[in-house]
Design a binder for these strands. Structure first.
Lengths: 128, 128
DNA sequence: CGCAAGGTCGTTATAACGTAACATTCTGCA
DNA sequence: TGCAGAATGTTACGTTATAACGACCTTGCG
């Protein structure tokens, strides 16, 4: 399944992962298994769940030796491309502060941000 | 439906709205209608959709005369309470900048942030 | 060994969220 | 009135996710 996510190079839903495994890799998985394996992969920081789209994406630091920082995702509203980035500490700090000001405590530094990627921005501009 | 969201005082899924309308208000709605009405309410800034939980919540500024700023939401991971806040411009600015640095263009200033609310933070602390 | 306790995994069924597609009704206008 | 197009009702289905249960298998101990 990790292979499927890495090879596809994009965010897949659980059922898309299943199809990929079945069609490309020859593994026949039931939904329940997919979710169980995804849970394991998430716990081990190999895969991230995108809450806004209910999809899953291979962590872009799988092969890195260093620690896994909670990621931020830029998600293109138009082509659904996902970029995993590490925003400057400053950003996280200001969000944390603002959250605390409202009396809440930040639970996760993962952010999912609605964007347009460079390509789609250009396309939009020329078509408009 | 707006009445249902306001009276319930929390985020409801489309089907919960439907149940509320049916049981408490005596309106019998089919899912399709609920979604169509939600679309209208969203377009008119009366309701916000929470992407991370697929729920809907009445805009907390329904009765305000002033403009509707894109909201930020603090969402309690534990009790699912939702607080609609307006984060300082500074926060949005830093996020926008960081996004642009990565070559993306911010599409929406709505942020949904994983938190623990004050109560749940306390509960956690005492139980731990 | 043989058995019980507990865990993993396969399987079925179903809940929850959302939309496509088409029928019907309403509304405004020639 | 009669027609076009919009709004609304209705059915069916697609997608995401989990509950529930049983088969099997490991492991530890008498």
């Amino acid at each position: 399944m990790l292979e499927a996510l890495v090879k596809s190079g994009k965010a897949l839903s659980a059922y898309e992962i299943r199809d990929y495994c079945c069609n490309q890799l020859g593994y026949d998985l039931l939904p329940m298994s997919v979710y169980r394996i995804l849970e394991f992969l998430e716990n081990n920081d190999l895969v991230h769940r995108l809450n806004t789209s209910s999809k899953y994406i291979a962590c872009s630091h799988i092969t890195c030796p260093h620690d896994h920082e909670p990621p931020q995702f830029l998600i293109c509203k138009s082509c659904h491309r996902v970029e995993e980035v590490s925003m400057p500490d400053r950003v996280i700090k200001t969000v944390t502060q603002a959250t605390r000001l409202a009396g809440f405590q930040l639970a996760s530094k993962q952010l999912e941000i609605d964007c347009y990627c460079t390509e789609c921005t250009l396309t939009k501009d020329t078509s408009a």
